[in-house]
Computed example of a mutant assay.
Amino acid sequence: MNPTDRTLEPSVKEAPAHAAPTTAPSARWREERVTKDAPTPVLECVDVDVRYGGFVAVRDVSLPFGHNEITALIGPSGCGKSTILRSLNRMNDLVDGARVDGKVQYWGQDIYGPGVDPIEVRRRIGMVFQKPNPFPKSIYDNVAYGPRVTGMDVDSMDDLVEQTLRRAALWDEVKDKLKQSAYGLSGGQQQRLCIARTIAVEPDVILMDEPCSALDPIATLRIEELMVELRDRYTIVIVTHNMQQAARIADRTAFFTADVDETSGDRTGVLVEFDLTSKIFENPSDSRTEDYITGRFG
């Protein structure tokens, strides 16, 4: 994205000039590159509550998502992780009765503010879902779909498709069958194709909702390596139940839990703590985080 063009009005972004790294950085490199200071936020939740009708699904979340960092959201089921993730690009708009209070700021602009185009929000802040969901089209047309429907000014669609598939570490596996159905790919390949489809429109941020939960360990490792490769080009936010995965790939981690109303039994998600991943897993500040990580609850 052109760093001078951060408004959420419909526009065509130029591809960044720098290329993604070709090898995954080590965990040590990850820890060295991230400071203990608060991250420079691309996205930031400020006092965010999310409601579905009269039910408060998650409350009072203030959380920055750092530029060119991977942030993992962890916690037990029903604690609001995916709800917060969907609020970051207005996917909750598609749910009847959903309401987001507070602010979700993208480069300082509230994405829920008046006049903001939710379609443009979702172009700048892309989403990869839990289960691979390629379109019933060819591999080529899956990647080209976004640039076509958004009217991107592309010199050569063939070049864009190749560049994007290379960035998603899929080109060498599919270059001879681009016109074949995406359904013929393995689950891991389909998920990488969905990542390619997301990055084809040059977003700033990629949201991932448990992207490896339906994959085998080998495919999961490849997706994790890909996320680390993509980090130098994009800001990534991932929801995961796999704490080892968070420990392996995330720069910072946010731990959520749920408060239970004793009368109604309703569970409301709350953010417990947010810090460097090494701090969260080795020396958490809150006993609830330690209990979850060590398996004493959740």
Rank of each mutant, 00 (worst) to 15 (best):
E173D: 13
E173H: 03
V174N: 02
K175S: 14
D176K: 03
D176M: 05
D176Y: 05
K177A: 09
K177S: 08
K177I: 11
K179V: 06
K179M: 09
K179E: 14
Q180N: 13
S181D: 12
S181W: 01
Y183D: 15
Y183M: 14
Y183V: 07
G184E: 09
G187Q: 08
G187L: 05
G188T: 02
Q189F: 02
Q190Y: 07
Q190N: 09
Q191A: 07
R192M: 14
L193I: 14
I195E: 06
I195L: 08
R197S: 14
T198N: 13
A200P: 04
V201K: 08
V201D: 11
V201M: 15
P203Q: 07
D204S: 13
V205H: 07
I206Q: 08
I206M: 15
L207G: 10
L207M: 11
M208S: 10
E210K: 03
P211E: 13
C212M: 10
C212Q: 04
C212N: 09
A214R: 00
A214Y: 01
D216S: 05
P217I: 01
P217A: 03
P217V: 00
I218K: 00
A219L: 02
A219F: 03
T220R: 07
L221P: 00
R222E: 14
R222F: 01
I223T: 05
E225Y: 01
L226A: 10
R231W: 04
Y234M: 05
Y234G: 11
T235H: 05
I236N: 05
I238M: 15
I238F: 02
I238D: 04
V239C: 14
N242A: 08
N242Y: 02
M243E: 01
Q244V: 06
Q245D: 00
A247G: 06
I249F: 00
I249Q: 01
A250P: 04
